[in-house]
């Protein structure tokens, strides 16, 4: 078996909330309250094989984007390992990260905010390439930029324009060309199509698939849209409140979702397919705050199947017989008596 392109182990990211002054308090023993933590990611593990597309799905605030941006080292991980081609890069200082960035690039969500409005397209797409060092003549720079743009379906004449002269879909193509400029093996895509109209969304998804085949890319694809994830992913991880609650191959996940939350998510998504009659699983309430995680299982406050053990013990992500993995006490035993009806 080929070694994974990306291996993440027990990744934790917590953001401190509030400054020094917010912590001052009166009449509670200590004058200084402990620093509050927003626990965005709580021990997430995942692996991506060469050429594989792994989709992270979940609702807003579930930490999926934070996982992506922590792997790209936009955020510093609080703890855990991030192995790229076997090398742990989670503690690498800034300069030592530079060669790693040749293997790992990122595509962003907002096509309007992810391109510097004051740069020409040529300079935008070549930025990661130039950051790697080495001198390029004007001619070479122009030629390489044009070649990159051609890969994403833009023409040479557009290389000298500014981002505001492009539509949302074209800007997203520019963002993809930028990621390709260093010929990476792994691209982290943070909701790359969620800001686009559906007809444009299809263009971009098709382009990403073509590029994967051409360059044998792996994607970590973050999305809140299950049908998009279904379309592009080989494997899918479902996140809730900073925890990975289930990972499975795409077909397994959609055929036989195991975690109660995955089931809710699948049934709640509106769909055009008439084969899925409107039997929606009812779910109570809303996602708890990441400032105060519930004890035990993260989903127990809304889970229709929660029982005593769920409040006491936090379920670990356990591998199942069919290759998937679930973090739920109902799937903890080999006997089938407690299996979800």
């Amino acid at each position: 078996m080929t070694p994974p392109v990306l291996e993440v182990k027990d990744l934790v990211k917590a953001f401190p909330v509030g400054g020094f002054l917010d912590r001052l308090q009166v009449g509670k023993g200590s004058l200084l309250a402990p620093q509050r933590q927003l626990r965005a990611v709580n021990g997430v593990s995942l692996t991506i094989a060469p050429g594989e597309v792994f989709a992270l799905v979940g609702e807003s605030g579930c930490g999926k984007s934070t996982v992506a941006k922590t792997i790209a080292r936009i955020y510093e991980p609080t703890s855990g390992e991030i192995r790229i081609d076997g090398e742990d890069v989670s503690r690498l200082p800034f300069r030592a990260m530079l060669p790693v960035r040749r293997k790992l690039q990122m595509i962003f969500q907002d096509p309007y905010a992810s391109l510097d409005p004051r740069q020409r397209v040529r300079d935008i797409v070549m930025e990661p390439r130039l950051a790697q060092g080495g001198r390029l003549s004007r001619r070479e720079l122009q030629d390489e930029a044009v070649a990159l743009l051609a890969k994403v379906g833009l023409n040479a004449e557009q290389a000298n324009r500014y981002p505001h002269q492009f539509s949302g879909g074209q800007r997203q193509r520019i963002g993809i060309a930028r990621a390709l400029s260093v010929r990476p093996t792994l691209i982290i895509a943070d909701e790359p199509v969620s800001a686009l109209d559906v007809s444009i969304q299809a263009q971009i998804l098709n382009l990403m698939k073509d590029l994967r085949d051409e360059f044998r890319l792996s994607y970590l694809f973050v999305s809140h849209d299950l049908s998009v994830a279904h379309h592009i992913a080989d494997r899918i991880g479902v996140m809730y409140l900073g925890f990975m609650v289930e990972t499975a191959s795409r077909d397994q996940l959609f055929r036989e979702p195991k975690h109660p939350y995955t089931r809710v998510l699948l049934s709640a998504a509106p769909t055009l397919d008439k084969s899925n009659p409107g039997t929606k699983i009812e779910i109570r309430g809303e996602v708890p705050s990441a400032l105060r995680l519930p004890s035990g299982c993260c989903f127990r406050t809304r889970c229709p199947l929660a029982f005593d053990r769920c409040a006491v013990e936090r379920p670990a992500l356990k591998p199942q017989a069919d290759g998937s993995a679930v973090a739920c006490h109902l799937h903890d035993r080999t006997d089938t008596e407690r299996m979800i009806p």
């Binding site: 559906v198 007809s199 299809a202 998804l205 098709n206 049908s227 379309h231 055009l272 397919d273």
Partner: peptide, 13 residues
């Protein structure tokens, strides 16, 4: 046709 659907897996949209 440009919306990906779960019921049918198409290679390209």
């Amino acid at each position: 046709d440009s919306i990906p659907r779960i019921a049918e897996r198409r290679d390209r949209l």
